[in-house]
Design a protein around this nucleic acid. Structure first.
Lengths: 255, 255
DNA sequence: CGCAACATTGAACGGTATCAAGTATGGTGG
DNA sequence: CCACCATACTTGATACCGTTCAATGTTGCG
């Protein structure tokens, strides 16, 4: 689908994706090309667009090439819990492929570009290219590790520690992907959405944010976050980024 | 390692395991045998024994053949969060194989039997037998789905709903595995451990349990749970077992 | 039988939610 | 360019769910 020998011909979102597939998932050039070749036309979405519908049939693997997205579970009482945050390069539903229907609704947080790989073709790729199966498994495992960390903060941490930890995680994930987040980064989340990630109320998120600001730990306005005191924030969060090592280039692994 | 043609010669824990590998993960007889052949001598553990040490090096895949186990994350303030509960047939660290060190400590909740498959041999199996790689991936995905559900309750549900949902889940998982849980089942958890699963205090767990009992929804004494009013409990829990379909024999899947 | 772990109960406290109002902010159309 | 509107953010008051602390029962095991 793309002429990787001639980088000028590639759409702008491909480099980020290839970086992920190659560096993080250690796929060979041939495997990367096979994946891209099997994918359908890129989809452009704007904030709020639904990429995967809750209870919708699982028909393809979706890879986020640009932008951010979130997976939401809605409850009958109107509350929501955001169970995952995706950045460029993440696979939105690697683990969901074993389920006939999606258990979450996944929507774009920014304008976004995604690629879809129909299940039928993916099945062939998995059969013929073990490294691709392995990559999907690794992606599933990496996201499960993140979820475990979220469970810990949801179950046992104060509002302040949750907020701090979440900021550390996002910052670190972007750092892994090569974004230079030293001058801050875009965090396209409303306080209500932060609350839905952290299991808090929006009002309380607002108050705790003010505490973090008043202690010169962070700045956050108009969807841009700057971490002013990284060491301080790490300490409050008890942040240990080892749980994100599944996202980094492997130096050891399952085989 | 085992003569599957002659069932009399198999240790008692093998049938449950084979049922899982064959039914749930759809492994061929040959793949099952290869897995078992690669495994080390079964380990017998008693309640409290550590099966996988937090921050310990990842050296093998561990499969729980008998009993129950839990994965714990300990915090500096002494609090704990239990991030997973395992029943017979579950793989304890399928997703952790991508991490050089375990992020959780996994210990037995009952007397238990486990099999270990050294990474080196597992690597060979994965390479030569794609169905085994796929099975490990599926196991990772199934556990991730359960974790997502836990995240929802930890973030957005009341104590009563959490307890109810947890009971529904365990009951259902045992049901899938062929246990007849109609007369109740063993739930080898103290109230403190329930609290550490549900992100609550032990005192509150105690009080909410009494509410559930007083409404004739459950009975629970000396580590034995009986669900008296399944429909009522499901309703309180808003329990929808579809998220557990990854544990059931597949009628559709990734390929 | 006696000890240790577990379960239960009560009282007081506290973090977070909820409700309700008011204030910025950004985008849109006139 | 400004007025307007919708959305998001901020702030205060109050209520509640769940925690903490402390004491007392209870169970089961050696």
């Amino acid at each position: 689908m793309f002429d990787t020998a001639n980088r000028r011909s590639m759409p702008q979102y491909v480099p980020a994706l290839v970086s992920k597939l190659a560096r993080r998932l250690a796929l060979s050039l041939s495997d990367q090309q096979a994946l891209l070749a099997a994918s359908s036309t890129p989809r452009h979405a704007v904030r709020g667009d639904c990429l995967i519908r809750e209870d919708g049939e699982t028909t393809s693997l979706v890879i986020l090439c640009r932008g951010m997205a979130r997976a939401v579970r809605s409850l009958t009482d109107g509350n929501q819990q955001i169970v995952a945050l995706f950045v460029a390069g993440d696979m939105l539903n690697a683990g969901d492929l074993f389920f006939p229907r999606s258990r979450t609704s996944i929507s774009a947080l920014t304008s976004a570009i995604s690629l879809s790989i129909p299940l039928e073709q993916l099945g062939r790729l998995i059969t013929n290219r073990p490294a691709i199966a392995r990559a999907l498994w690794q992606e599933t495992a990496a996201q499960a590790a993140i979820q475990q960390e979220w469970m810990v903060w949801l179950g046992r941490r104060t509002a302040k520690a949750r907020l701090a930890h979440f900021f550390c995680e996002v910052s670190y994930r972007l750092h892994i992907d090569g974004h230079d987040a030293r001058d801050g980064f875009d965090l396209p989340l409303t306080q209500q959405e932060l609350a839905d990630i952290l299991g808090l109320s929006a009002v309380n998120v607002n108050r705790v944010l003010q505490v973090l600001r008043s202690q010169d730990l962070i700045e956050l306005r108009s969807n841009r976050l700057i971490i002013r005191d990284k060491a301080g924030l790490y300490e409050i969060a008890e942040f240990d980024p080892r749980y994100l090592s599944g996202l980094e280039p492997p130096d050891t692994g399952a085989n």
